[in-house]
Design a protein around this nucleic acid. Structure first.
Length: 272
DNA sequence: ACCCAGGAAATTC
DNA sequence: GAATTTCATGGG
């Protein structure tokens, strides 16, 4: 029996800024402005009415689950104020999209989607992820599909993944699944390890370098000190924050990074 | 035809 | 060891 769950008193959240800013690839904006997506093998529709977060097709028992997913316990208003003192341009970027939150996605899903993301664009990443779920994920009652587990994917070969058209990334996905399933790579351990050790744990996977590891730690394990640097961030750092490094952005560098990433993507003319 | 995309592995110098 | 090339695929 599913129903509508309402989480009230939600601030500092904008669904478009959070769900369509390149941290998750499974949310689709609907005509009415709501977003439909799947997480934890549950297909829901979310919308915001003032400070009410409305989650359709959810059960009341999962209220905490979704609250955690949207990271509603963390005071982003305060964090924004604090990190804005670091650099005026960072303050402007934070003010530009104050509704960004760092989702607490499932670690294995974040790992796989950011393996897929390498040397790729967001539109095609979404397509590959969708085909991965449709091909190998558990079908859900409403026609959607769960993200396949490492146990399922560990039994697949790169040839099995050919229909995804993931290119050279197919064998990386297989290696990730195999090492997670066998326990050779322990994703849970990455929550508590020192940052460099957590990064090294993930980089045992072929196809996981510094950037994919950082994204997995930030978006899948909520290591908000992570500071992934992709081509956009590289440009932004050179033009907007010359001489600064990840350490200069403090213990919430990952949140700062997401403000900067989004701001840069929305202002490509800055880097023409 | 050429270039780029939320990079990393393989190769070359 | 550091710099360059290659790796699939699709869109501009």
């Amino acid at each position: 029996m599913t129903d509508t769950v309402i989480i009230s008193g939600v601030t500092d959240l904008d669904l478009e800024q959070t769900l369509d800013c390149g941290q998750s690839f499974r949310w689709v904006r609907q005509q009415d402005g709501s977003f439909s997506g799947v997480a934890f093998g549950k297909s829901v529709n979310v919308s915001l009415d003032g400070t009410d977060l409305i989650i359709k097709n959810a059960v009341e028992a999962d209220k905490r689950l979704w609250s955690d997913y949207f990271d509603l316990e963390l005071d982003y208003g305060k964090i924004r104020g604090d990190i804005s003192k670091i650099h005026p341009v960072l303050g402007e970027a934070a003010k530009y999209a104050p509704g960004i939150r760092i989702l607490r996605q499932e670690p294995y899903e974040a790992l796989c989607t950011f393996i897929i993301s390498q040397n790729n664009n967001i539109k095609r990443i979404k397509g590959i992820v969708q085909r991965l779920c449709e091909s190998f994920g558990e079908p859900l009652p409403d026609g959607q599909f769960a993200f396949p587990g490492a146990d399922t994917m560990a039994r697949l070969t790169p040839e099995d993944l050919a229909p995804l058209r993931a290119g050279f990334r197919a064998r990386y996905l297989c290696d990730a699944a195999k090492k997670v399933e066998s326990g050779e790579v322990d994703l849970g351990l990455c929550r508590t390890l020192g940052y460099d050790e957590a990064r090294a744990e993930l980089m045992k996977i072929t196809g996981v370098g510094v950037k994919v590891a950082d994204c997995t730690l930030l978006f899948g394990l909520h290591r908000v000190e992570a500071f992934p640097v992709d081509v956009w961030m590289k440009r932004a750092m050179e033009k907007l924050f010359p001489g600064m490094t990840a350490e200069d952005f403090g213990s919430y560098a990952g949140i700062a990074q997401q403000y900067i990433f989004h701001y840069s993507r929305m202002h490509p003319e800055l880097f023409a």
